[in-house]
Design a protein around this nucleic acid. Structure first.
Length: 264
DNA sequence: ATGCCCAGAACCTCTGGA
C-alpha cells in the first residue's frame, strides 16, 4: 500500500494534476493540505471518477485538509481533541483530519506557519504542536500496536541541512529551538519520522518557493514529514520524495512524500 | 529547459504563504 502526503496549495487549481499524479504514482491514500476551499467547493467528483473516496474539512479559502483513499475511509474526524484555535475569539481552523484507510489511522496535518517569532501565530504554532503531541502520545499509550501515520506540512525545518542556507532564516520562524523541540518531541511520544530513516541525505527538499527561480536553483526546504508509530514504521520499506511534481506550469510549491507500506 | 510568485476573494489590491 502506498500512503502519500502533499501540500497541494489549492485543490481546485490542481485537482486534475492531483488525480493524474495519484494514478501514475499508484498511490492508495493521499493526505492533502492547503486545499484552500470550503467543503461545498471541494472537487469531489474529480477524485470519485478515478475511484477514490474523499474526506475533507475546510471552512473558507484558507487552510483545508483532506484524505483521499481507494482502500476505504472510515471513522473520519475533523480536528483532533484539544486542537487549539486562533484569533481574538479563538476558532479552530481546518488543519487536521483523521481517517482509517486500509487499516492505518492517517492524519493529514497542516501545522500553523507561525508568521514571525513575535507574532501571536508563533505561540499558536507551538501550542498546536504540543497539543497534537499530547493526543498522539495518548493514542500509542492506549494501543501500542496502533498503526498511526501523522503526515503533512509541519512548517518546521528540523535540521540546518534541511534548508539551502540556514543563515537566510536567522531570526525567522521554522528554525527556532522551540519549534525544533516541538517537532522532535514526537520521537518521545512513540513515533518515528520515516522519511528521514529512508532518505537521510542532506539538502533533500520538499518545498521550493515560487519566487526567484528557487526550484531550478534548488533553493528548497524540507518541511513535509511522516511521523508513524513503531509497528507501522516496521512496515515502511521505502520513501520517495517526488521532485518531478514540482516541474512545469501549474505545480504546487510542495511535492508529494510517498511511503511504501508492506502488507501485514 | 525545472526558468525569474501564486491563489482566493473581489473587483483592486490585499491576505497569506515560507
Amino acid at each position: 500500500m502506498r500512503i502519500a502526503t502533499w501540500n497541494i496549495n489549492s485543490v481546485r487549481a490542481r485537482a486534475d494534476r492531483a488525480v493524474a499524479w495519484l494514478e501514475q504514482s499508484g498511490t492508495d491514500v493521499l493526505a492533502l493540505q492547503e486545499t484552500k476551499c470550503s467543503d461545498d467547493k471541494f472537487p469531489y467528483s474529480v477524485f470519485e471518477a478515478a475511484g477514490y473516496e474523499v474526506a475533507h474539512v475546510g471552512y473558507h479559502q484558507w487552510n483545508g485538509v483532506a484524505i483521499v483513499s481507494r482502500v476505504g475511509i472510515e471513522d473520519v474526524q475533523a480536528g483532533f481533541d484539544g486542537q487549539p484555535g486562533f484569533g481574538e475569539e479563538p476558532s479552530v481552523e481546518a488543519r487536521a483530519i483523521g481517517a482509517t484507510c486500509g487499516g492505518v489511522r492517517v492524519w493529514s496535518l497542516y501545522v500553523p506557519h507561525g508568521r514571525a517569532v513575535d507574532d501571536p501565530h508563533y505561540a499558536y504554532k507551538l501550542d498546536w504542536l504540543a497539543r497534537l503531541r499530547e493526543q498522539a502520545a495518548g493514542w500509542v499509550a492506549a494501543d501500542p500496536d496502533a498503526q498511526i501515520a501523522l503526515v503533512g506540512d509541519w512548517n518546521v525545518i528540523p535540521l540546518d541541512t534541511d534548508v539551502y542556507d540556514v543563515a537566510d532564516f536567522a531570526g525567522h520562524t521554522h528554525v527556532t529551538p522551540a519549534e525544533r523541540e516541538a517537532f522532535f518531541a514526537f520521537e518521545r511520544a512513540g513515533y518515528t519520522e520515516v522519511s528521514r530513516v529512508h532518505l537521510p541525505a542532506e539538502h533533500t527538499y520538499t518545498y521550493w518557493d515560487y519566487q526567484q527561480l528557487a526550484f531550478p536553483k534548488n533553493k528548497g526546504l524540507r518541511i513535509d514529514f511522516a511521523w508513524v508509530t513503531a509497528p507501522l514504521a516496521d512496515r515502511v520499506s521505502s520513501v520517495l520524495i517526488d521532485r518531478e511534481a514540482r516541474k512545469g506550469k501549474g505545480a504546487s510549491d510542495h511535492v508529494p512524500v510517498v511511503l511504501e507500506v508492506e502488507e501485514r
